[in-house]
Design a protein around this nucleic acid. Structure first.
Length: 614
RNA sequence: GGCCCUAUAGUUCAAUGGAUAGAAUGGAGGUUUCCUAAACCUUAGAUUCAGGUUCGAUUCCUGGUAGGGCUACCA
């Protein structure tokens, strides 16, 4: 992940590509050259949007220019302001407050711009990058011993949204998943199932497959705890007790058998995994995410072991006296890292090495973005360092998209305390709440059950997705179940509602045979609120580009909220269909239509569906 | 112990080194004969502490405090 400073640097470069900002900067440089006979470095021309409380569109921070003007901030601002007004017609006025030169762009320029925007089919078209890349996005990465939970939901939503955003910007994006389907954890579930399962299957139990396998994992841990407690009483320390308990020894043995290809173990493993995959697929489908290519650790770990042996032969790695294999990363400021156990079995990172190589051979990617929680920051440092050590230069393109943990109001989710929020339960609860709220408000009374259920689903998921995606991915977030089902304020349903109201107006316009006349855009006199709406609509492509560079769906989420808020104010203060003036009616129709299109595009980049009515 | 991350209204989130730190929610009050009141309006309320760099610091640097993570022959 690039540093924050670098991200902003890139953003700024990109922004100047866009029309108004680049014009502004050039004109200001021209003004300074003419007034003070000085060439100014770009970095000294600081342009920002004017704060709401002041009159203006763009603001030049004058302080850095003082070294050229050798004058007070006030005077310098006035001089530059006068020059711009006299020489360039896009500027209609200016004012100087303290060290800030507030420039006002003429209304006609904004209106002209909006007129063009209203004829554009794809509002993301200008986000296309000049150099498209091949990018793999890895997300979800479940273990096959437990169902998906709230943490996976954040992961999946971020990964999927990242895919939407990057591909909208013109990159070739491949959605991938690595399923951690082997290892000691799945042996634990298998062992418990053999011992206590009595042949139970998803069919006989009526349980979703991933939940059923999860049940046996929990059972294993419970039994193991009892066994370790027995040993603890004999005065053995906790760690040793856990590791030497009979169940644990059996699980280890099973892992060895699995790696040796023991048929009985392998068949059981295949069966139980197939239950889990069926369950996962249901959850993914409900969540609206999918993958282009799914990798399985059970395939890739072999290749991982191969490249480890190869590197061992080239003396890049070393073998310990107990024949475990290690990488020495002290020269990179990291530690020694185990790559193969003394019994020759692979560890977690071994398969990640293999997976990375396989992916590179398969896709020759420019970047491979791992959507994985920040608890694995060290893991990815190590992964990259080892690959580089092995001579794979492309490892520079591995990016750990390190997102923050999801916590509950009472702290971290803990399986031992039963506070894990299950993904399937959560999705269901959100839909149920949407249904409850809608019915209570008496909405959708004249629609069929199927239509209503579809809308409840969209609202429930919209609420969940927005609640999670509006937060800066890098930060830990608190998931408060009570807040998450609130559909008022800064929420997904608020934005969906704004959209649904617009769609309703547009529908009514069609019914009443009111048509858009694009000439109306330039022929009417806009109100302040209308101009404000135009100005925020214009920012959409900037926002998408910024989100792509910063890997942050949150930027788009917050934009959609701002836009909705702005539109709702407009909607409240203006009538659209019942205004007397035909041109005004038409213009407001265009304004509403473009708003709905941009809201829809923005939310679809978050993977959120928009109901036509609600 | 070592390394990393975080700290903003009661709460959940915003804020390129720039102006009077924005929203939402909760609190108090108001708006519907009119295109969906899941809306709109008014109001009170915050940068963890101590230094430093700077014309200017929530933002950058150092230290303290508090919280979280990593430091497995777990994944």
């Amino acid at each position: 992940m690039e540093s924050k400073a670098l991200i902003y640097y890139i953003c700024r470069l990109k922004f100047y590509v866009f029309v108004m900002e680049s014009i502004l900067k050039e004109k200001i440089k021209e003004a300074i050259k003419s007034l003070y006979n000085s060439e100014v470095a770009d970095s000294l021309i600081q342009i920002q949007e004017t704060k709401k409380d002041f009159k203006g569109d763009f603001t030049l921070v004058v302080f850095p220019i003082l070294r050229f003007s050798k004058n007070t901030p006030e005077q310098t601002g006035i001089e530059i302001g006068n020059y711009l007004i006299e020489n360039f017609s896009v500027f209609s006025e200016y004012n100087v407050i303290k060290g800030f030169l507030n420039l006002i762009i003429s209304d006609s320029w904004w209106v002209e711009l909006f007129s063009k925007m209203s004829q554009v089919k794809d509002h993301c078209a200008s986000c296309m990058v000049d150099n498209p890349q091949t990018i793999l996005v890895e997300y979800s990465s479940p273990n096959t011993n437990k169902p998906l939970h709230l943490g996976h939901i954040r992961n999946n939503l971020l990964g999927y949204s990242l895919y939407r955003i990057l591909s909208t910007c013109g990159h070739r994006v491949i959605k991938t998943n690595i399923v951690n389907d082997r290892g000691i954890h799945i042996c634990k579930s298998m062992l418990a199932w053999i011992k206590f399962g009595n042949g139970e299957t998803p069919e006989t139990s009526g349980m979703k497959g991933d939940h059923l396998v999860g049940k046996y994992y929990v059972l294993f841990e419970k039994e193991l705890k009892q066994q370790s407690e027995q040993l603890l009483k004999k005065g053995i320390d906790e760690e040793t007790a856990r590791n030497s308990a009979p169940l644990m020894l059996e699980a280890r043995e099973m892992l060895l058998k699995w790696e040796a290809g023991d048929k009985e173990v392998f068949d059981l493993w295949t069966m139980m995994n197939s239950w889990v995959y069926k369950g996962f697929n249901e959850t993914y489908e409900k969540l609206g995410v999918d993958f282009d290519k799914i990798y399985y650790e059970s395939d890739t770990y072999k290749y991982g072991k191969e490249i480890v042996s190869k590197a061992l032969n080239s003396n890049i790695l070393y073998k310990n006296s107990d024949s475990s294999v290690w990488a020495d990363l002290t020269s990179d400021g990291l530690d020694q890292k185990l790559l193969l156990r003394s019994d020759g079995t692979a560890v977690y990172i071994t398969q990640d090495l293999g997976t990375a190589c396989i992916r590179h051979e398969e896709f020759n990617f420019d970047k491979c973005i791992y959507v994985v929680g920040n608890e694995q920051n060290y893991h990815f440092q190590v992964l990259k360092a080892i690959l580089k050590k092995m001579g794979y230069q492309w490892a520079d393109g591995l990016i750990h998209f390190s997102y923050g943990m999801v916590e509950l109001p009472e702290g971290r989710m803990k399986s031992r305390e039963g506070t894990i929020v299950d993904a399937d339960d959560l999705i269901k609860e959100m839909t149920d709440t949407a249904r409850e709220v809608s019915l209570e408000l008496g909405k959708l009374e004249n629609y069929s059950n199927e239509e209503r259920e579809e809308i409840f689903r969209q609202i429930g998921l919209g609420a969940l997705k927005y609640f999670i995606l509006k937060v800066d991915p890098r930060k830990n977030m608190t998931f408060n179940p009570v807040d998450s089902i609130d559909f008022n304020g800064n929420t997904g349903p608020f934005i969906q509602y704004t959209y649904a109201r617009i769609r309703s107006v547009l529908k009514k316009a069609t019914e009443n045979n009111l048509k858009e006349d694009l000439m109306s855009v330039t022929s009417v006199k806009q109100t302040d609120k209308e101009l404000q709406l135009i100005k925020i609509l214009r920012k959409f492509p900037f926002v998408v580009s910024e989100a792509a560079v910063a890997y942050s769906p949150a930027i788009i989420a917050n934009y959609c909220y701002d836009l909705s808020k702005e539109y709702n104010q407009f909607y409240h203060d203006h009538s659209i269909l019942s205004d007397e003036d035909e041109n005004i009616r038409s213009f407001r129709l265009v304004l509403s239509r473009v708003t709905s299109e941009i809201l829809n595009s923005g939310m679809s980049l978050l993977g959120i569906e928009m109901p036509e009515r609600m």
